[in-house]
Amino acid sequence: MKHYEVEILDAKTREKLCFLDKVEPHATIAEIKNLFTKTHPQWYPARQSLRLDPKGKSLKDEDVLQKLPVGTTATLYFRDLGAQISWVTVFLTEYAGPLFIYLLFYFRVPFIYGHKYDFTSSRHTVVHLACICHSFHYIKRLLETLFVHRFSHGTMPLRNIFKNCTYYWGFAAWMAYYINHPLYTPPTYGAQQVKLALAIFVICQLGNFSIHMALRDLRPAGSKTRKIPYPTKNPFTWLFLLVSCPNYTYEVGSWIGFAIMTQCLPVALFSLVGFTQMTIWAKGKHRSYLKEFRDYPPLRMPIIPFLL
């Protein structure tokens, strides 16, 4: 059985960083990364991007050496992705923050609204209902991160945790300040508006959870398998008939419901920014589905049925 020789060059300087002799033909890129780490321990596998061309796409960890368009002496180019952190850690951090930050404003801890309001309670029912909904949303997200989601990528750049936390924590503080303010004004149409908004919120939260469970069942634990998601017997998953990412559709719907319930401008802005970002993600995933699966359902749109 022939063996391969693998040289790894710096993608920027073309400097030879490592030479691997007698590499098995069936070795994966993940195994080559581990061998590279032995000579350069500062670059652990998650930091490494190996590619066939200095400006090309990163090879997948599961790619097999003998199936790549290389000879028995293969040249790979290395790029440092920077310090990495696990997706689970990032999600837990960015979701735990809003949960606790919101509660600080809800309980009106000292130095927020003035001494005479310390630890007082709002007289408006919608304020307490909003706290329950907000807390439920982020507790749900935390539990899904721990027990439901299966991540195709193990890590992301460390800098992302600061960007994500600034976004989630900042908006949580902004909306919580106004919703729990002693001078907060309840919704214009009173109980009817709150009940309608609560119904929207609850339905969308159930829908979002149902989609996450359906997506989880598509991917076996520990794998990166991708399949076309289809509706199940659960009615909340029937939205798969019309959109590629109904989890985002339901998520946006939840925040629209919360915005109607609280009639709070920061919540509306958070919903708008979230919708914009999720639309970008949904379009990317939709394109990926179309590219990977020739039999992908043609009627589906990325996030909004028939429109977007």
Rank of each mutant, 00 (worst) to 15 (best):
residue 201 F to V: 07
residue 247 N to R: 14
residue 267 V to G: 07
residue 89 T to M: 10
residue 97 G to W: 06
residue 93 T to D: 02
residue 68 L to V: 07
residue 185 T to G: 01
residue 145 T to I: 13
residue 99 L to I: 02
residue 252 V to I: 15
residue 218 L to R: 13
residue 308 L to V: 12
residue 210 S to D: 00
residue 252 V to R: 14
residue 146 L to A: 06
residue 153 H to T: 06
residue 20 L to A: 03
residue 282 A to F: 11
residue 3 H to A: 09
residue 183 L to P: 04
residue 43 W to I: 05
residue 263 Q to Y: 13
residue 34 N to K: 07
residue 12 K to F: 02
residue 163 K to Q: 13
residue 159 R to G: 12
residue 45 P to L: 10
residue 114 G to A: 09
residue 291 K to A: 00
residue 103 L to W: 08
residue 46 A to E: 14
residue 131 C to H: 01
residue 167 Y to E: 15
residue 19 F to Q: 07
residue 128 H to Q: 05
residue 49 S to Q: 12
residue 23 V to A: 10
residue 290 L to S: 06
residue 97 G to V: 08
residue 279 T to S: 13
residue 13 T to L: 06
residue 21 D to H: 02
residue 253 G to W: 07
residue 262 T to M: 07
residue 222 G to R: 12
residue 27 A to S: 11
residue 236 F to K: 04
residue 125 T to S: 10
residue 219 R to H: 14
residue 16 K to S: 07
residue 104 L to S: 04
residue 40 H to Q: 13
residue 228 I to P: 05
residue 126 V to T: 12
residue 61 D to P: 12
residue 291 K to C: 08
residue 292 E to M: 10
residue 48 Q to S: 14
residue 100 F to P: 12
residue 153 H to Q: 13
residue 276 T to S: 10
residue 159 R to F: 15
residue 103 L to I: 06
residue 48 Q to N: 07
residue 87 W to Q: 15
residue 71 G to A: 06
residue 294 R to P: 11
residue 102 Y to F: 07
residue 212 H to A: 02
residue 122 S to N: 12
residue 286 H to K: 04
residue 91 F to R: 07
residue 142 L to M: 02
residue 125 T to K: 07
residue 16 K to L: 06
residue 197 A to G: 14
residue 74 A to S: 07
residue 18 C to A: 08
residue 204 C to G: 06
residue 300 R to S: 03
residue 133 C to F: 09
residue 78 F to Y: 08
residue 219 R to C: 00
residue 157 P to L: 08
residue 272 L to T: 01
residue 199 A to T: 07
residue 227 K to N: 13
residue 282 A to E: 06
residue 122 S to R: 08
residue 28 T to Y: 08
residue 23 V to T: 07
residue 146 L to S: 07
residue 302 P to N: 00
residue 142 L to N: 14
residue 70 V to I: 11
residue 261 M to T: 05
residue 26 H to R: 11
residue 22 K to D: 07
residue 99 L to N: 00
residue 231 P to A: 06
residue 256 I to C: 05
residue 187 P to T: 04
residue 84 Q to H: 07
residue 296 Y to H: 05
residue 300 R to K: 13
residue 55 K to M: 12
residue 230 Y to V: 12
residue 212 H to N: 01
residue 107 F to E: 05
residue 242 L to D: 05
residue 53 D to A: 14
residue 30 A to M: 02
residue 37 T to Q: 04
residue 134 H to Q: 05
residue 72 T to P: 06
residue 143 L to P: 05
residue 207 G to T: 15
residue 202 V to T: 03
residue 266 P to T: 08
residue 45 P to A: 13
residue 178 Y to P: 14
residue 267 V to L: 06
residue 43 W to P: 05
residue 258 F to A: 14
residue 182 P to D: 00
residue 170 G to Y: 00
residue 88 V to F: 12
residue 292 E to T: 06
residue 76 L to P: 06
residue 46 A to Q: 13
residue 12 K to T: 11
residue 39 T to S: 09
residue 157 P to S: 10
residue 260 I to K: 11
residue 188 T to I: 08
residue 67 K to Q: 08
residue 225 T to R: 11
residue 208 N to E: 15
residue 237 T to R: 13
residue 60 K to F: 02
residue 34 N to F: 04
residue 220 P to R: 12
residue 131 C to A: 10
residue 11 A to Y: 07
residue 224 K to I: 01
residue 257 G to C: 08
residue 112 I to M: 00
residue 11 A to L: 05
residue 257 G to L: 02
residue 254 S to D: 01
residue 243 V to D: 02
residue 281 W to F: 13
residue 287 R to G: 09
residue 208 N to H: 07
residue 283 K to Y: 14
residue 82 G to D: 15
residue 93 T to P: 13
residue 242 L to R: 06
residue 103 L to V: 08
residue 244 S to Y: 03
residue 137 H to L: 08
residue 58 S to E: 04
residue 141 R to F: 14
residue 85 I to V: 12
residue 49 S to P: 07
residue 283 K to R: 10
residue 36 F to I: 00
residue 164 N to D: 06
residue 15 E to Q: 07
residue 191 A to F: 12
residue 260 I to Q: 03
residue 79 R to F: 01
residue 23 V to D: 03
residue 33 K to C: 07
residue 261 M to F: 13
residue 106 Y to C: 04
residue 41 P to S: 11
residue 166 T to C: 15
residue 149 H to Y: 02
residue 300 R to C: 02
residue 17 L to V: 14
residue 114 G to Y: 15
residue 268 A to D: 04
residue 62 E to V: 01
residue 191 A to K: 00
residue 283 K to S: 03
residue 194 V to G: 14
residue 102 Y to K: 01
residue 40 H to S: 03
residue 292 E to G: 08
residue 35 L to W: 05
residue 22 K to Y: 10
residue 80 D to A: 13
residue 279 T to R: 14
residue 27 A to E: 13
residue 34 N to Q: 13
residue 278 M to N: 03
residue 275 F to C: 14
residue 108 R to L: 05
residue 136 F to L: 11
residue 226 R to P: 12
residue 113 Y to K: 15
residue 201 F to H: 13
residue 3 H to G: 08
residue 70 V to T: 12
residue 179 I to G: 01
residue 126 V to W: 02
residue 20 L to S: 12
residue 244 S to L: 14
residue 97 G to D: 00
residue 198 L to R: 07
residue 25 P to I: 13
residue 236 F to R: 06
residue 75 T to K: 04
residue 224 K to D: 12
residue 19 F to T: 06
residue 97 G to L: 00
residue 252 V to S: 03
residue 162 F to T: 06
residue 158 L to S: 08
